[in-house]
Structures are given as C-alpha cells and as structure tokens.
Simulated assay, not measured.
Amino acid sequence: MLWTVLLALLLLLLLQTQLSVCLRELRTGASSSPVYSPSSSSSSSSYNATQQRLPGAIIIGVRKGGTRALLEMLNLHPDVEVAKAEVHYFNVEEHYRRGLAWYRAQMPFTLPGQLTVEKTPGYFAAPQVPARVWDMNPAVQLLLIVRDPAERLVSDYTQVLHNRLTRHKPYQPLEELLLHKGHIDPGYKALQRSLYHQHLARWLEVFPREQIHVVDGDALIRDPFPELRKAERFLDLPPRINPSNFYYNTTKGFYCLLSAGHDKCLDESKGRPHAPLSTQALKKLCRYFRKPNKLFFEMVGRSFSWC
C-alpha cells in the first residue's frame, strides 16, 4: 500500500514538471512571435511590408489628352502601382483641407522600391496646384501628356455634352460656345484648357523643366510602346514594358493592353465619336492656336504635328 502511494506521488511530480516546461515554452514562443497591427492583417510577410505612400510621380494633365491610357499603360510595369481613381487633392479645396494623411490614404499599397503614381488631369490648368505639389514633394516627377489642342477641345466638349445628355440637361452646340460674332471666343473654358503654354509657364515657375516629362498623346494612340519606353527612362524604371503588352483592337480602333495572359481595353468613353464641328470653324480654331502652340513648342524644346 505504501509503495503504491509513493509511486502515485512520483508520477504526479513528473507530470507537474512536464507541465511547467510546456507552459514556459508556450510563453517563450508567444513573446518571440511577431505582433500584427490592424493595418497589417495578412499572414503574408510581403504584404506586411506594404504601406500607402505619397506618389513619387503624378500625371498632371492634360484633360482629354490620354491620361487614363497613360496611367493604365504605366501600370503594366511591375514596379508601379497606381491610384485607380482621380484624387483631385491639390485642385479641390475640400480635399486639400483634409491634409496629406487623407491624400496618402487614397494611394495604393506598395512594397518598398515600388513607385506610386497618381493622375488628375485637372491639376495642369489649376493655378494653385504647382506650389502645393512642390510643398508635398519638391522631387516628385511630373508627366504631362498633350495632344492636338483643337482635337482636345472637341473631345472636352464631347465629354461634357455626353454627361449633360445622360442627365437630360440641355447644352449648346459647340460652334455657339466656340464662336462669338464669327470669331473665336477666348473666354470659352475648353479653349482656355488648350492654351498649354500658359499653364506650363506656371509649373515652370516652381519646377525645373527636367522634372516634367512631356508625352505625345497622339503618338501614344498610334504606337504606345515608344512613348512608354521614354516614360520608363524618365521615371528611372528598369525596362519591363514590351511591344507584346499591346495589341490593336480593330473594333475599338485603338490599342488594348496584355499582361500575364489577360487583356484590358479602356472603357467605352475612349474613342467616343466627336461632336460635329464645321470645316470653317475648325480652320479658325487652328489659326487661333498657331501662336500659342509655337510658344509651347519653344518651352518644351520640341514640336508636334498639330493643325
């Protein structure tokens, strides 16, 4: 009987010792495990390294110049992540008052070394924007995509017309807005947005010329790859975008994108038929733009085949 009691006590002591060892190991393991914050809820270590960063490059315009196409094409690059929506941080007072924390929260999650790109074409013509962008980051890289200013104006009008018709609101014909007593009306807003030299002058008061890369929007439509290669070099990105990333869609009439076996075409608003403009009015418009275009060519150090 005595031996039975002693054996039971010995077994109990051994179990207690083993239990203490297990508890100590559990506590040690818990203290050495990484602590996950709510903002890094993924089990993937690579995801935990991501964060939302302020953009290192911004597509500043022009409106109806091909900014969406340029953004989507840059997004083919593995080292680039883009903000999917136009943020309008620097040109909308309500947004700007929310501060840089709000702006950063609109950006995609990126890994260290990846480039965040944002595009808002309204930035280019807004007088207050250049200084605000400089205050955010004086080293930010700027991309400006331009196209024939007369074509841009008609495309601008066409978009506004479509939006108003969709909401069943009336809108004047283009020539009524463009011409006043048979002459070009310089007060027409769509016309003012096509005076590239005026807007670029404000940016060059703040940023050095070499910090602004000009993309030929018309060339981007005809043959995207050469323009994308130039943009890669400007952004100091390794060449990763190839001609095989593009194919011409004969139905849509412009290039679509191919990446990892998936194709993507821009939405139906791209390539929308332009509102009509008489030959006479178009000639007047082209004559009006001759001097502004020449000034712009001198500013950027290159010329374009515009009307």
Rank of each mutant, 00 (worst) to 15 (best):
L2Y: 04
L14M: 06
T17Q: 09
S20A: 11
L26R: 15
G29N: 13
A30D: 04
A30T: 10
V35Y: 04
Y36P: 00
S39F: 08
S40P: 01
S41W: 13
S42H: 11
S45I: 05
Y47P: 00
Y47Q: 04
N48L: 04
R53Y: 10
L54N: 08
P55W: 09
G56F: 11
I58C: 05
I59S: 05
I59N: 04
G61Y: 06
R68Y: 03
A69M: 11
E72H: 06
E72V: 04
N75G: 07
V80D: 04
E86M: 08
E86P: 13
E86L: 09
V87I: 15
V92W: 12
H95R: 12
Y96R: 09
R97H: 11
R97E: 08
R97T: 10
R98I: 13
R104Q: 15
P108R: 15
F109S: 11
T110W: 14
L111W: 12
L115F: 06
V117I: 15
V117M: 13
E118D: 14
Q128N: 01
Q128C: 01
P130E: 08
A131E: 13
R132N: 09
R132I: 03
V133F: 15
W134E: 05
D135Y: 08
L144R: 07
L144V: 12
I145E: 00
V146M: 06
R147K: 12
D148Q: 03
A150F: 10
V154Q: 09
V154W: 08
V154L: 12
D156P: 00
T158C: 02
V160A: 09
L161T: 03
L165K: 05
P170E: 05
P173V: 02
L174N: 03
H180R: 10
H183A: 12
H183T: 11
H183W: 06
I184R: 07
I184A: 06
D185R: 02
G187A: 12
Y188E: 00
A190Y: 13
L200M: 05
A201C: 10
R202E: 00
E205D: 15
R209A: 06
D216N: 15
G217Y: 14
D218P: 14
A219C: 10
P224R: 11
P224M: 10
P226L: 07
R229G: 00
A231G: 03
F234H: 08
L237K: 03
N242K: 11
N245C: 09
F246T: 01
Y247P: 09
N249F: 06
N249R: 09
N249H: 11
T251K: 13
K252V: 07
G253N: 08
L258Y: 07
L258E: 05
H262C: 01
E268L: 07
S269G: 06
K270C: 10
G271Y: 10
P276D: 01
Q280C: 01
A281M: 08
R287H: 15
P292G: 08
N293C: 08
L295T: 07
F296M: 12
F296I: 13
G301I: 15
R302L: 10
S303K: 15
S305M: 07
W306V: 12
W306N: 10
W306D: 07
